[in-house]
Design a protein around this nucleic acid. Structure first.
Lengths: 262, 262
DNA sequence: GAAAAAAGTTCCAAAATACAGAACTGTGTT
DNA sequence: AACACAGTTCTGTATTTTGGAACTTTTTTC
């Protein structure tokens, strides 16, 4: 790849100003090793574009409002289905199992896309249907990462109805399960929604560090054990992490710490 | 100003992709009147920087996650956020309503921080978005305290579009409203931007006596009346006055007199 | 408050870079 | 299977960018 020098310079400047807001021209000259006249010309131009903002009083520069424009445009342009289309096809190809994409809208978990297993025996589609938040992989993967107010609010509204003998119907146990999910970064459905159906699911983070979607790999106990399903964990997490990154999510040192901040 | 050609091209491309997401290289060639090889080289480079994102399947481009980085950095660089972090958390705790912090940059009102109401039903964030200056609490609270030149300049640039039946679309009436806001030190949004949404907002003064930020408490008519919202007036004003004082603002005898001086 | 130092701004010839067309490769369609 | 269309690579040429020097403005120092 032949670097375009002017873009190298541009992003060098932007990155520098990003980490050192309110910087003077002279400081840029010293730290970026470019000539004063060159930097002056570039910086003036960038101010003109609104990419940098100049404080007339202190003669300092910081990133400008035009970048907010671009940033919000990116965020709005994300259609999670589009974003995940390739990834879930890939997962489907690798696992040969049914892959679901769900998203969190209006305090509901909704299936928004899927790829069928070639072994699939069901005829109906889940797309558009709601997934119970407490007994499905996609549901638990999303809910585990919501703040406590949201969890309590949903718990209050929706009773924990037992679909199978494995359904978690105790709120306390469910919260413990959420803790495990946050730690492990995957949620299992151990025949909690439907007998004979198991799945592994992983959350998708947006740029705010919020979980608003998840992907699951589903199979049937006839053909697949939980242990074998767990072997898909790394490939699944790789998928969701890539998507999260594309959405602007920055992985922080403390994986679950963000929950307390929000 | 001597334009830097490479930056002209860059921002031409970014602006185009911003308004036309998921665009093909060929389309760029046609609409931007650049040669295919040049565009290809630039676009590859931008993908490399993360400024553009390429969908491998459809071979289309859209704005990339790097721009989210820059955008959020800009928003976070407003130190008014730090200054107000505690205050808006406190207001949120007291009122249990959504609290917004907005600031005035480049003749635009931008939301820069918020605390969600526990009752919140919306999934999207306003942070980074522009607030219309004439039909939002934060907008009116800031604009009311600008000098007449700024007001006229903004009025000339931005048409008063009716978002709801309550939107003030007459410049004269708006200026009268600004007078009331200066006198009362709070601005109300009476479903002027969105039906069913009301808010009360108060300005923040800097050490020069200029208003450059504001805080609002937002609710919905289903749950809250304007009269009840007004009961938050004193606690809201206490908050903003404390912040203004922390920023070095000295309250003078004639509360609104400064307008004529500036 | 004057002088000096530092920072910011302008100009232009030299040099480095980006450009465009052509040729080539890959992909999808009829 | 062949064709058309979109994407990719290459290279000499021409345009753009560069940085030193000179100049202006601002800030600091005495």
């Amino acid at each position: 790849m032949v670097n375009i020098k002017s873009y190298d310079k541009l992003f060098q400047i932007l990155d520098y100003v990003k980490t050192n807001p309110n910087v003077k021209l002279q400081t840029l000259v010293e730290d970026l090793c470019m000539s004063k006249s060159t930097l002056h010309r570039i910086v003036m131009e960038l101010v003109d574009y609104g990419v940098l903002l100049r404080d007339g009083r202190s003669r300092t520069y910081r990133l400008g409002p035009k970048l907010i424009d671009y940033g919000t445009a990116v965020i709005e342009s994300f259609d999670i289905r589009h974003e995940c289309a390739e990834a879930i096809s890939e997962l489907n190809r690798i696992t040969l199992e049914t892959v679901h994409l769900a998203t969190f809208v209006d305090q509901k978990i909704l299936y928004v896309d899927k790829r069928e297993s070639p072994h699939n025996i069901r005829m109906y589609s889940m797309i558009g249907k709601e997934a119970p938040f407490y007994c499905t992989g996609v549901g638990k993967a999303i809910m585990a990462f919501q703040n406590i107010e949201t969890i309590e609010s949903v718990l209050k509204k929706r009773p924990l109805v037992a679909y199978t003998e494995h359904t978690i119907v105790d709120a306390g146990r469910l919260k413990q399960e959420f803790e495990t999910i946050r730690r492990e970064k995957v949620a299992f459905d151990r025949e909690e929604h439907e007998s004979g159906i198991i799945c592994i699911a992983s959350p998708i983070f947006n740029h705010m560090g919020e979980v608003f979607a998840s992907i699951s790999v589903t199979s049937i106990t006839q053909r697949m054990s939980l242990a074998r399903l767990e072997s898909y964990k790394s490939v699944l997490i790789t998928s969701t992490e890539t998507i999260s990154k594309n959405l602007g999510y920055k992985v922080t040192a403390e994986d679950c710490g963000f929950l307390n901040e929000v």
